Simulated scan of single mutants.
Amino acid sequence: MAIETKSMQMTPADGNVFSDLGFTPEEAAKLKADSQRLVSLKRALQDHLVTELATWIEANDLMPADTAKILGITRQRASDIIEKNGMEFSIDLLVNMLARAGKSVTMHIA
């Protein structure tokens, strides 16, 4: 099995993947702004869901091991929720954990 040892030329990105993909500067700027807005909305939703879980954990005076067992996750992941470090959790998983905690999640779309 041969190991690739040749160096390759790499062109640095300009900070906008849409420009790098060949969109016009105007289109690239709009697409980047739109994608950043969507990412911000997703992060805000994740933060809200994690905060709800952390509040439930605190209200029930649960330890990470107990939390992990109830929510069906590892102890480390339970600690992440307690510390409100939830960006690595999918929205789907957070909703499932809230359901296991006896919480209902409702949605309002404007």
Rank of each mutant, 00 (worst) to 15 (best):
R75P: 01
S104W: 00
L45Y: 00
A13F: 08
E58A: 09
Q76I: 08
T55H: 03
L31Q: 12
K84N: 11
I81T: 06
L53W: 04
T51Y: 07
T74H: 03
R43P: 03
H108F: 05
M87S: 10
T5E: 15
K84L: 13
K30Y: 04
N16S: 04
A65V: 13
S19W: 08
E52K: 13
F18L: 10
H108P: 03
F23R: 10
A65G: 01
L93F: 04
V17G: 09
N96F: 02
A59M: 03
V50A: 05
V17A: 12
A59W: 02
L41Y: 04
L49P: 00
D47C: 03
D66N: 15
F23C: 02
E52M: 14
L38E: 12
D47Q: 12
R75M: 09
W56Q: 10
M63S: 11
I57S: 05
A110D: 06
T51E: 09
E26T: 09
I82R: 11
A13M: 14
K30A: 05
L71G: 08
K6P: 00
G15V: 08
L94K: 01
A68N: 05
R37T: 08
T67M: 02
S35V: 13
G72N: 01
L62R: 13
Q36E: 14
F89W: 14
D61M: 08
A65F: 07
G86I: 15
R100V: 00
A29P: 03
K6N: 07
E88C: 14
N96T: 01
F23Y: 15
S79C: 00
Q9M: 13
M87Q: 11
S40A: 06
L71D: 00
N85Q: 11
M8A: 14
F23N: 02
N96A: 05
V17H: 07
S7D: 15
S7M: 14
D92E: 14
R77L: 13
Q46W: 01
L71H: 05
L31K: 10
E4H: 06
E52T: 14
D92Q: 12
L53A: 04
